[in-house]
């Protein structure tokens, strides 16, 4: 419960550093109790109530914090990417491989978002890369304030790269800007080819799609063309790379894409 405004804290958010020791509990949503917005009031004649026009974006607070993150990334020449997918599409596997093969070259640090457990953070830590685990508790997505907390703990160096693994979910994370440079969707061939048509919001906000687990294609009847059509239907400008995070197929094109984004920022 937030003492000032009495609203309930939906959070229970925890940030854990790479050593797995320091637990920092943060308020689920950033509050400052400023009342600096002009409200327009109208007296409703003959009633004991009045109507106050607010005209305020519901996500204004998140968008403001996301902008603050974006400025921080720009000022420090840090490239941040937001990786999103349904549960199990292979985000952590892709990250493990990416930090192992490219982590030192590009100075990659990872922020792991999951509702519970330190498991994915530990998988990244085992590769030796800097990592912070955020547990969202009931939350089904990361928001800009959680990312800001994660960044304070990760403390990325100037010119480095931060890869954020969002909570496994193809719906909610699409709505919450973190201040990242680009959003990357990971879809896997085991999920079926119509994913982009079923979750157009997610594909619409993404710059890149990695179609993962293509090593399994011989065992499935997954129509790659249908997937590509759907992805372009949801977002005509989207770029799609076909990869296997476990076997390494196509992974060099993902690395090229990362190097390209990183170079553009320097």
């Amino acid at each position: 419960m937030c003492a000032t405004c009495g609203c309930s804290d939906a959070g229970g958010v925890t940030v854990t550093d790479a050593a797995g020791s320091a637990h920092q509990h943060v308020h689920g949503h950033g509050h400052d109790h400023g009342h600096d917005h002009a409200a327009h009031e109208h007296a409703d004649d003959g009633h004991d109530s009045r109507t106050v026009t607010l005209e305020q974006a519901v996500l204004a607070r998140n968008d403001e914090l996301a902008e603050r993150n974006r400025r921080w990334f720009a000022d420090n020449g840090v490239l941040a990417l937001n990786l999103m997918s349904s549960p199990g599409a292979g985000k952590t596997t892709l990250l493990e491989r990416t930090v192992a093969e490219l982590g030192i070259e590009l100075g990659i640090g990872v922020i792991e978002g999951d509702q519970e457990t330190l498991l994915d953070g530990e998988r990244i830590r085992a590769t030796g890369a800097p990592v912070v685990q955020i547990n969202t508790g009931a939350g089904c997505h990361l928001d800009a304030s959680m990312l800001a907390d994660g960044l304070r703990t990760l403390d990325p160096a100037t010119g480095s790269m931060v890869l954020v693994e969002n909570v496994g979910n193809l719906v909610c994370p699409a709505l919450f800007d973190l201040g990242e440079d680009s959003k990357v969707v990971i879809a896997s061939v085991t999920e079926g080819a119509e994913k982009p048509l079923k979750y157009p919001h997610m594909f619409r906000v993404a710059q890149l799609v990695l179609l993962n687990k293509i090593d399994l294609l011989p065992h499935l009847d997954f129509d790659v063309e249908r997937f590509l059509d759907g992805a372009r239907r949801a977002n005509p400008r989207i770029e799609v790379l076909e990869v296997s995070a476990t076997r390494g197929d196509g992974i060099d094109r993902w690395y090229e894409w990362l190097r390209g984004r990183h170079a553009q920022l320097q």
């Binding site: 405004c5 939906a10 109790h33 305020q56 519901v58 996500l59 607070r61 997505h141 719906v171 909610c172």
Partner: peptide, 24 residues
Amino acid sequence: MHELSITQSVVDTVCERMPDATVR
């Protein structure tokens, strides 16, 4: 379900802007 956080943001925003009001 992001509608829960959306609803939470709505309530937070109104609480912040009108801490003493009774909203009908």
